[in-house]
Design a protein around this nucleic acid. Sequence first.
DNA 1: CATCAACCCTGAGAGC
DNA 2: TGCTCTCAGGGTTGAT
Length: 271
Amino acid sequence: MPELPEVETIVRGLRAANTIVEKTIINSRVLWQRSLAVPLPLEFQQLIKGQKILAVDRRGKYIVIKLTSQSLLIHLRMSGDIFVESGESNRNQKHDRVILDFDDGSRMSFNDTRKFGRIWLVDDPKIVFGKLGPEPFEESLTPEIFFEKLNRSKRQIKPLLLDQTFMAGMGNIYTDESLFIASIHPTTPANLILFEKTALLLSAIREVLSEGIKRNGASIDWVYRGGDFQNHFKVYQRDGEACHRCGAILQRMVVGQRGTHFCPYCQPKAA
DNA sequence: CATCAACCCTGAGAGC
DNA sequence: TGCTCTCAGGGTTGAT
């Protein structure tokens, strides 16, 4: 499930020389209509044809592809992935949903098994992510401001961190890992967390995301292959196993309708 | 404002 | 081997 580090890894790959930047889209194929959030397939194909790719960026979990006169936004959601290739492909193309053909004979495929991913072709990206919260690495997001944001909410800390309007980019994995590092129970009301603890949480978030980016960036090929961060989870999907820090048996519970993994000893409910 | 259920989907894993 | 059932999971929407 692509979260910020996975999306960042894909974006860096797409940004690499001779991948998609500077190429012109000469044709597009929409194999699953609902992968397009906006506009409708026919208009999408007419509008995107002839546009050149100028740059690739990331905002939260969105891939932002700047075109000549518009922006192509891609959200991978649960199972989305991007492949760029030329000539015959030995890849499983079963779940390809939208394909862009380039002027040099190569193509970019949006592959999405579960069909949750979405693509937007818009004049102004702000229309799509106008309400997104700050980037976790934004310098203006100081420990003081982070504390104030948390202090303003009575919501449980985990669902709050997953709320993209609070902060953009966090997903289930990195949230569980961050809360473990900061020793905060996932159901703790945000406004009850003391300043020192919130500062620790912010640095934990940045540490975990950086580690994720580093691991996925370690992929040999530019295409996202899953990286190897999954081998470094401290709590995620480790319920029933021993906590690396204290040896207690890690637990799983549902918080805000999400599977949540934590250490009952390191992350006591009293916080 | 906070919480919650339903929905969108498929494949993996469990149970038989 | 293979069938049926359950469920995860990001984000949106609508109800409480």
